[in-house]
Write a protein that binds this DNA or RNA. Structure first.
Lengths: 196, 196
DNA sequence: GAAAAAACTTAAGCTATCTTAAGAAGCGAA
DNA sequence: TTCGCTTCTTAAGATAGCTTAAGTTTTTTC
């Protein structure tokens, strides 16, 4: 039983939720995929590197975060199976990343290298459409976060985090959730107790 | 002297900073432009409407904002001459906007309606590239804002606002700047005094 | 399965920011 | 030029969220 074939199938199903790939498209897509395994705590990207793949999580759990001037961690993105993870800024602008992209569990990624992906966009426009939609929803998600950070207090943000990341909450340490919400771990602990 | 010709020229110069338009491209672009005048405080978009143009500010000053559950205003974007203003979420997703997009001064916009713009993308790929770059930098700007809101206190955000919006700061009331920074007008006033 | 490391909780004291309220200043329209 | 409306300031009291520090629980490693 080839595990990788299952991962490819999972990627194709995922893409087919938004666009319709024909057999030829599936064939071409499959031919460019790269598999990458990461151990727990291993980094996919570190500051100074440039993101040059799109990364689909086939198995495992990842996050992206950065360190501020006081060496505080701030988590920007979390993902598990069938989510995408990247420093989209670095990937799109081709500039060096300021982020860490890290595995929180033993993880397998299905990667699409930018150079071949861009050729594929011409041959299989559905795939181009798919990624346009993805980038659009990345924009929407990050704008949503700006809005929430201005309208909601920490507890409200925690509740809406639990809605958005229902399946992820159980799999990541609480101090990472705190660093996503923009509060200290102590304060998140306090909030959970207060409202329980 | 045709004022509108000047505005078209300004748009073309602006686009030419990022891509190279040939004569035919300029011609085609010019043919789809629509001019729109707004009085001070007039709305371009209100909640429930759908954004279906890209809007280049030829003259004047605009902002986008939304109201939270407590009817507090939160400013998301500000712009003056040669900036773009929109609810990009609504424009891209074609869903109803939750935003107000409003003129802060008497303003003239040069508008590019989505339907003809998308046809133009096929005929003049440079224009498609230009807007891809714009959407990319919109993403980067919003992500920057998430990062700043987590790393910086209100005074640091105010300082970096003044850098980013140097020419805009003088033209908009302070309570709008406060609503952009995510603080009360009283607190911004206090910060300005304290550090002066 | 014990020891070490990582994550979580609790609590006290502190700081940033908000709320409310009132007055001052600036600006636009008649 | 004045009146009315909008914006800005000041200040006192309240609250959300932070810091530090210590102790507890859970997870990882050998």
């Amino acid at each position: 039983m080839n595990q990788n074939l299952q991962y490819i199938q999972s990627l194709i199903n995922h893409i087919n939720k938004d666009v319709t790939l024909d057999e030829a498209g599936i064939e071409k897509l499959s031919s460019i995929l790269v598999f990458k395994d990461l151990n727990k705590k291993e980094f996919l990207i570190e500051p100074g590197q440039t993101a040059n793949t799109m990364n689909f999580i086939a198995q495992g759990c990842m996050r992206s975060y950065y360190l501020d001037e006081n060496a505080q961690e701030h988590t920007l993105q979390l993902g598990i199976e069938e989510w995408w993870i990247n420093d989209l800024y670095s990937y799109l602008s081709r500039k060096k990343s300021r982020m860490y992209v890290q595995a929180l569990e033993k993880t397998t990624l299905v990667q699409l290298p930018r150079i071949v992906l861009e050729t594929l966009f011409i041959e299989v426009p559905e795939i181009s459409n798919f990624f346009r939609l993805k980038i659009q929803s990345a924009y929407v998600a990050v704008q949503e976060r700006v809005i929430d950070s201005m309208s909601d207090d920490a507890y409200e943000r925690y509740i809406s985090f639990r809605k958005t990341y229902r399946d992820i909450e159980q799999r990541v340490p609480q101090y990472i959730i705190a660093s996503y919400l923009g509060v200290t771990p102590e304060f998140l602990s306090y909030l959970r107790k207060k409202h329980s």
